[in-house]
């Protein structure tokens, strides 16, 4: 309970700064209009106007909140204006991408840990893959996959997986290598096979590392899915919502979609965190 006050203070500070910035940024338009009408405006009128503009440079917090509320609750969830609809489109691509990225990342890590050649050859490529801007590669993925007839959810999932596999590889390589020499020696005295060493020691030892990675990669998956929606001119998904908002100068729509994406990301990370706690408790570890 003692943390409530500081958290609220920070939240309040953000809101104050946000409102101040909204007044400052949106005032230009008001002054402009007034000058054209050759009228005088008071500061009070400027503030009042800055809160209710239809296409503000920076929407005020309550406008974004209203936009979010309308997006989530004000529309039928099948409507093209519904954030639930767009969120679901993005979420489904995110989940598929997350699944592909996680499985691929784990398999790569297993290969890297068990094979010297893979250790030397795969890791540099994995690192290089992450230095390429995703925005540059996303259109190519979509075009290439479309040319072989793959469209819709899968290309987005591939881009999503491209971003999410990397944290999993890094975390799992560290996790699979976390058992110390003594523990490996001990298994050797039991004449344990490589497979037994993997299933009984390396894999369970890597679980805490895996979950740390999954929290990063699930958020990256979402970013990937949204980026995957941008270049395709997709009509559905949070990315499409962002894009159409920017085409038509609908800043409230953009900010609403942004916050919807942020809420989705927070929810996903929280779910992974919950599964992590349950798993580690079941594995007898203190958390």
């Amino acid at each position: 309970m003692r943390s409530v006050l500081p958290v609220l203070t920070v939240l309040l500070a953000i809101l104050v700064i946000w409102y101040a910035a909204a007044v400052r940024l949106n005032s230009a338009w008001t002054y402009d209009q007034a000058a054209r009408a050759e009228a005088e405006v008071t500061f009070g009128e400027v503030v009042k106007d800055a809160m209710v503009q239809e296409r503000p440079v920076l929407p005020a917090p309550h406008q974004v909140a209203a936009g979010l509320w309308d997006g989530f609750a004000g529309q039928a969830i099948t409507s093209k204006k519904s954030l639930v609809y767009h969120g679901w489109v993005t979420l489904s691509a995110t989940m598929v991408g997350f699944l592909i990225g996680t499985l691929g990342g784990i398999l790569l890590a297993v290969g890297i840990v068990h094979n010297k050649a893979m250790d030397l050859s795969v890791m540099p490529w994995a690192i290089a893959s992450q230095t390429i801007p995703i925005l540059a590669i996303a259109p190519m993925v979509i075009v290439v996959l479309a040319s072989v007839g793959v469209t819709g959810l899968l290309p987005k999932a591939v881009i999503s997986a491209y971003l999410s596999f990397f944290p999993v590889v890094v975390g799992m390589v560290k996790g699979l290598r976390s058992p110390d020499q003594m523990m490996l020696d001990q298994l050797r005295t039991y004449s344990a096979s490589k497979g037994q060493t993997f299933w009984k020691l390396r894999l369970p030892a890597s679980v805490p590392y895996l979950f740390t990675s999954l929290k990063v990669s699930v958020a990256a998956s979402l970013v990937g899915a949204i980026v995957g929606e941008l270049p395709a001119g997709a009509s559905a998904g949070l990315g499409a919502r962002l894009l159409s908002g920017s085409y038509y100068g609908q800043t409230i729509q953009i900010w609403s979609a942004l916050f919807a994406a942020a809420l989705l990301a927070a929810g996903l990370v929280m779910i992974v965190g919950m599964i992590e706690r349950r798993t580690l408790v079941r594995m007898g570890m203190r958390t």
Binding site: M182, M183, A205, M283
Partner: peptide
């Protein structure tokens, strides 16, 4: 061994 080396998850 010098350390017990018990698996914490078992």
């Amino acid at each position: 061994f010098q350390a017990a080396g018990l698996y914490p998850w078992r």
